[in-house]
């Protein structure tokens, strides 16, 4: 696992708000092997700490999946260097998107409870 690219890269773009109160963010997946089991577990555990609904997809695909479902997140099989998009709605949506984008940008660091 490469730890060298922990700098938040310039693809990180959590945009605040649109008219419907949906918070959006996107980030490049730099993890060496893509969205495999361990990164997916970390992402889902983090997503579950928020009350809001969080949808996720690989940029360019049609379907959004529930970022709180490990089965669905793993099933995206998102490849390295793909762009992951989030859309969240609910009281803590901004914090959720920011946290998830940071997790991926920092390449899924250990110990983020």
């Amino acid at each position: 696992m490469t730890k060298s690219r922990s700098v938040i890269n310039d693809r990180v773009a959590p945009n605040p708000v649109n008219a419907e109160g949906v918070i959006k963010g996107s980030v490049q997946l730099i993890h060496a092997v893509g969205m495999h089991a361990r990164p997916a577990v970390k992402l889902v555990k983090l997503a579950k700490r928020f009350q809001c609904q969080i949808a996720m997809r690989v940029a360019g695909r049609v379907d959004w999946v529930d970022a709180k479902s490990l089965t669905k997140v793993m099933a995206t099989r998102a490849a390295r260097d793909s762009i992951i998009e989030f859309e969240a709605s609910g009281a803590d949506a901004s914090a959720a998107v920011a946290a998830l984008v940071t997790l991926i940008a920092q390449d899924f660091p250990d110990g983020g409870h």
């Binding site: 089991a37 577990v41 555990k45 579950k48 700490r49 709180k68 089965t71």
Partner: peptide, 27 residues
């Protein structure tokens, strides 16, 4: 086991933990 534990880690109730594990079989 991994699906169930991930769901449980977030504090989910038993029915949701079971559903998370069984989501694979349903797919």
């Amino acid at each position: 086991a991994v699906m169930a534990a991930t769901e449980a880690a977030g504090g989910s109730p038993l029915d949701k933990v079971q559903a998370a594990a069984e989501e694979l079989a349903a797919g």
